[in-house]
Simulated scan of single mutants.
Amino acid sequence: MDKLLEIRQLSILHKPSSTSLLHPLHLTVHKGESIALVGASGSGKSLIAQSIFRLLPENLKQNGEIFLDGLAITDQTVRKMRGNKMMLIPQSIDALDPLMKIGKQLTTLMNKEKNAQKLDTILEYLNLNHTVLNRYPFEISGGQRRRVLIAIALIKSAPLLVADEPTPGLDVDAREDMLSLLQSLKTKNNGMLIITHDFDAALKIADKIAILREGQMVEIAPIHAFCGKGEKLNHSYSRQLWNALPENSFWGYSHD
């Protein structure tokens, strides 16, 4: 498979204290592939997304190289890449413009000649009623706002899609719908990076799982390695996460 996103020796430093928040890591997402970054809060998952889009706060410094389809992502190139070559579905559902109706936020991103037809198709695909177009973000539910964020990603058709914590706060049915939607967005020509602390969700939608712990990448494993008691996993922390799932009897402990 062709490489889409390639991260080489990425590290992040807190400049005032010289504290390493992310230790040097490598990660490659191929076309047609979805990878989930899994780890506890504070493990560095979202920092990686911010690094890809060059959105780190001023007090943080990133080192290393990141390439998208062979082109280096730098302060100079990233402006043309955001929204065209790569899209971020942010963690916060407040990312939408609160002062602009949903319809205008969507149509301003589209080719005017094909607005109506394409918008109808996307709304139907996401199970969004046309009434949302005449509403402001605060007038629709959190689940609907997440779907609008996905609609923006669909409109732009960027090769790389990064979803930062796409399932928090959703009930069981809404969570399953969101996972199905994300899964359906994958094609042979694009790639996905899903950032989540929901290990079970990662297992359902990713081809590989990259596990972070305290700023270090401990393992990148294919989905088929997560079976049994984790014998095919290389790192003890990976096995602990796997065995901590309820269906694995919590830490491998059996009540039988």
Rank of each mutant, 00 (worst) to 15 (best):
K3S: 11
L4D: 05
E6W: 00
I12D: 06
H14I: 00
K15N: 12
S18A: 13
S18F: 15
T19D: 08
S20P: 11
L25S: 02
H26K: 07
K31R: 15
G32W: 00
G32S: 09
E33C: 03
E33G: 00
L37H: 01
V38C: 09
S41A: 15
S41F: 08
G42D: 08
S43R: 03
G44N: 07
K45L: 07
L47C: 06
A49Q: 02
Q50Y: 11
Q50T: 01
R54Q: 11
P57M: 00
N59G: 08
N63M: 13
N63I: 06
E65I: 01
T74S: 15
D75V: 00
D75T: 05
Q76S: 12
R79C: 12
K80T: 13
K80Y: 14
K80C: 12
K85W: 14
M86A: 11
M87L: 08
S92V: 07
D94Q: 13
A95E: 06
D97F: 15
Q105N: 08
L106S: 10
L106C: 08
T107I: 09
T108C: 08
T108I: 09
L109P: 15
M110S: 12
L119N: 09
D120M: 12
D120W: 08
T121H: 12
L128H: 04
H130D: 14
T131D: 12
T131R: 11
L133Y: 13
L133N: 05
Q144V: 04
V148I: 11
L149V: 01
A153R: 09
I155E: 05
I155W: 04
S157C: 08
S157A: 13
A158N: 10
L161N: 03
P168M: 03
P168Q: 00
D171F: 06
V172R: 13
A174D: 04
E176S: 10
E176R: 09
M178Q: 01
L179R: 09
L179P: 02
L181I: 14
Q183G: 11
L185A: 12
K188Y: 00
N190L: 05
M192W: 01
L193K: 00
T196F: 03
D198K: 04
F199S: 10
F199D: 11
D200K: 14
A201K: 10
A206R: 02
K208E: 10
I209A: 04
A210T: 01
L212T: 01
M217A: 03
M217F: 10
A221N: 04
A221D: 06
C227E: 14
K229W: 08
K229E: 15
K232A: 09
N234K: 13
Y237K: 00
Y237M: 01
P246K: 13
N248L: 12
Y253A: 12
H255G: 14
D256K: 14
D256E: 15
